[in-house]
Write a protein that binds this DNA or RNA. Structure first.
Length: 330
DNA sequence: GACCAGGGTTAGA
DNA sequence: TCTAACCATGGT
């Protein structure tokens, strides 16, 4: 759990109710957060019921099932389902994890300023105002999710993740809900390629994931080291040197785990489909055109991508004015 | 049954 | 450095 000081949220803990209250920035939409979190019925690492998020956290050695809710503007409630942990550090860790997961510390003012006058990004930014990049704070989870999702549809990717979690992750049942924790690298120490193949991972993906698990279990790879490597470019180079991690995976992890706002998974199929749809094209835009489209958003590519992904959700996309956009090609 | 999916590696030019 | 073949499997 990241405990970097700059990510520590403003939060308070009420001894009487046992609830931690986390302040949220003005540009934060709980509704958009819920929409993203419920995009797949196959998701196994959290659930949403009646506008409340249920998730299993781990602080220290404690498993903490929590309920996140939005009792009103400007704040979230973090309720510890089994009662608050005795260790105040665990409460702080849980709050910090939640804040990082939901990207509460990011000042999005520059992004919205950039988007405001943009014919493509403007309508997305206003239509989905307050949407933040839902993260994958744990590096191993982020890498496994990215590798598993390479070149397959999202539905199957969720199925693969679920199998990984249900076979090797920790499980906790409380008040009728089943909570899962993503496995740690060490949990896969004795797992073989054949075993993962039986879960319908391809042989390559099985190798990649087990290799990454080994690297992380041995300490050769860690989120802390990547963040401390001096620059996102250095972190990217480290990731790219790992077998099975190409440009898309590296940038996906930079975007969702290391939280580089300029991460840019330009080869992403979902990004291509979103642009194709918003630009009313019959074909996906070429990479060079995507680069040109993104040029004005330099430094905020990750958020632009996330907002474009958002436009693919069934709730639809805001009307994009075609004026000022590149002409449709056939 | 073809084509696609939130790609990556490898061999060959 | 760039391109094409290949990987493998479920969804639609």
């Amino acid at each position: 759990m990241t405990t970097r000081q700059k990510d520590t949220p403003v939060f308070s803990f009420d001894e009487n109710t046992g609830i931690a209250q986390i302040e949220t920035p003005a540009a934060f939409s709980y509704a958009e957060t819920l929409l993203y979190l419920t995009r797949s019925p196959l998701e196994c690492l959290h659930s949403v019921e009646n506008g409340r998020i249920y998730k299993l956290l781990e602080a220290g050695k404690e498993l903490l099932p929590v309920e996140i809710s939005n009792p009103g503007p400007g704040r979230l409630h973090l309720r510890f389902m089994q009662g608050p942990p005795a260790d105040p550090d665990a409460i702080r860790e849980a709050a910090a994890y939640t804040a990082e997961w939901l990207d509460l510390a990011r000042d999005m003012t520059p992004f919205y300023a950039t988007a405001q006058s943009d014919p493509l990004l403007g309508p997305l930014a206003s239509g989905y105002y307050g949407l933040r990049i839902i993260g994958v704070p744990h590096l191993f989870e982020a890498l496994c999710w990215a590798i598993a999702g390479q070149q397959i549809n999202l539905t199957f990717a969720y199925t693969l993740k679920r199998r990984l979690v249900e076979n090797y992750g920790k499980k906790l049942v409380w008040e009728g809900r089943t909570y899962w924790l993503f496995p740690k690298p060490g949990d896969l120490a004795d797992v073989t390629v054949e075993e993962l193949r039986q879960l319908q991972f391809t042989g390559k993906k099985a190798e990649y994931i087990l290799h990454v698990a080994g690297l992380m279990d041995s300490g050769a790879l860690s989120k802390e080291a990547l963040l401390a490597s001096g620059s996102y470019e250095a972190a990217e180079r480290t990731l790219l040197a790992i077998r099975g991690i190409g440009p898309w995976t590296a940038h996906y992890v930079l975007m969702r785990c290391l939280r580089n706002p300029a991460a840019f998974p330009i080869g992403d199929a979902g990004l291509h489909n979103a642009l194709k749809q918003l630009l009313h094209r019959t074909q996906k835009p070429a990479l060079e055109e995507i680069r040109q489209l993104f040029a004005p958003w330099r430094g905020w590519e990750a958020y632009a991508v996330f907002y474009l992904w958002r436009s693919l959700l069934p709730e639809g996309s805001p009307a994009i004015q075609t004026a000022g956009l590149p002409d449709a090609r056939t």
